[in-house]
Amino acid sequence: MKRGILIWAVSAIVYLGLVIAGYSLFATVNPKNNEQTKHVDHDQAKMDNQEGHQAHEGRTNKASDVTPKVSYANGEITIELKDKNKHVPELEVSHEKQMHLIVVSSDLKKYYHLHPEKKNNGLYSLKHNLPDNAYKIFVDIKPKGLNYTANPIKLNVGKIHQKHNRNDLDVDLELTKTIKGQTVELISQSFEANKEITLNFNVKDAKPDPYLGALGHVVILDEDGEKYIHVHPVADDKTVFKTQFNKPGVYKIWAEFKFGERVNVYPFVIEVKE
């Protein structure tokens, strides 16, 4: 009996040793398994970071759950918000405001950065006189728990206005602009599609004052006024911004900086190449 138990124990130990050896041999022959797992984890983290960066810029590839309606009458802009279920969405505060309203004329010459206030039943409004023209409106918001993309909304004011046609913007040969005595220079190594671009704004021996929770704001539109990008500085003490252009083409940049009680808007037209 004891001899049988001894034989069984020895057999079990030998079998266990063979299993361990076989697994070790498999791991040695297939070293890529662990590397692939690490690579997948790294890629997922990279995707998560990219999604966060896109949300910061007001961009997302997902379908929007909220479609704003914009109207204008008697010098007042009104925005109505409803989600896909006809409910009123709750908005997060982003850079000190629940809503940033970017209004540009269709020829991209006029630019306004406004902040309508909440009224009731999903209505936001603001008194602001718009000259007769064709405009594109971007309602920049962060609805809680909902996907959202700031798409252009066409708005015609008055009887005489420009049509919403493609613009022929002249690319700036000199990226230095002076507004109300304060000069700002846009410095960038290159403007290439599908690469992270650094936009460094040299404010020429001056330091902007904090404005809406940041040292500056940058809004970018493509030549058609369809592709909207809104970015903020990479740090609280720098006028440096990072973004990405998905397609080559001509883009217009509006850089906003506050000096004292005055907010200057610096327009730049750039060409993004392949």
Rank of each mutant, 00 (worst) to 15 (best):
A45T: 12
E35K: 09
K38P: 00
T60W: 00
E35P: 01
E35V: 14
E76S: 12
V70S: 03
D65K: 06
D48C: 01
H56R: 09
D65A: 12
K46R: 13
Y72V: 04
F26P: 00
A63P: 00
G58W: 03
H53F: 07
K32D: 03
H39K: 11
E51Y: 10
G52W: 10
P31E: 04
H53I: 07
T67I: 07
K46G: 12
P68K: 12
G58T: 11
R59I: 13
A45I: 09
N49E: 07
V29I: 15
V70L: 03
G58K: 02
Q36Y: 13
A73N: 03
E76W: 03
H53D: 07
A63C: 00
K32G: 06
A45G: 11
N49D: 07
G75Y: 11
Y72R: 01
H42R: 14
K38R: 11
E51N: 05
K62S: 14
G52T: 14
H56S: 11
S24L: 10
E57Q: 13
P68F: 08
D48L: 02
Q36L: 14
N34H: 08
N33I: 08
N33R: 02
T60L: 00
D43F: 14
T67P: 02
S71G: 10
D65E: 04
E76R: 13
K38V: 15
Y72M: 02
N30H: 12
A45D: 12
N34Y: 06
L25W: 06
L25H: 05
D48M: 03
E35I: 14
S64F: 11
E76G: 05
F26M: 09
S24R: 05
A73L: 04
Q50H: 08
N61Q: 08
H53A: 06
A27T: 15
T28I: 06
Y23W: 03
Q44C: 07
H39T: 10
Q54H: 08
K69F: 02
Y23F: 10
N30R: 09
D65Q: 06
D48F: 09
N74E: 13
K32H: 06
K46W: 04
S24E: 06
K32F: 09
T60Q: 00
P31K: 10
G58Q: 03
A63S: 05
T67E: 04
E76A: 13
Q50K: 05
V40I: 14
N61P: 00
P31R: 08
T60G: 00
F26D: 02
A27V: 15
A63R: 05
N33W: 06
T37Q: 07
Q50C: 01
P68M: 06
V40N: 00
G75L: 10
G75T: 10
E35S: 13
G58R: 01
N61C: 06
N49A: 15
L25Q: 05
K32V: 05
N61Y: 13
L25Y: 09
T37F: 07
T37N: 07
D65S: 10
V29M: 04
T28S: 04
A55N: 06
Q50S: 08
N49W: 14
S71Q: 11
N33C: 01
D43H: 12
N74D: 14
S71H: 05
H42D: 09
D43T: 15
N49C: 09
A73C: 01
E51K: 08
Q50I: 04
S64Q: 04
S64I: 08
G58P: 01
T37I: 14
A27E: 15
S71V: 13
N74P: 01
G52K: 12
P31M: 09
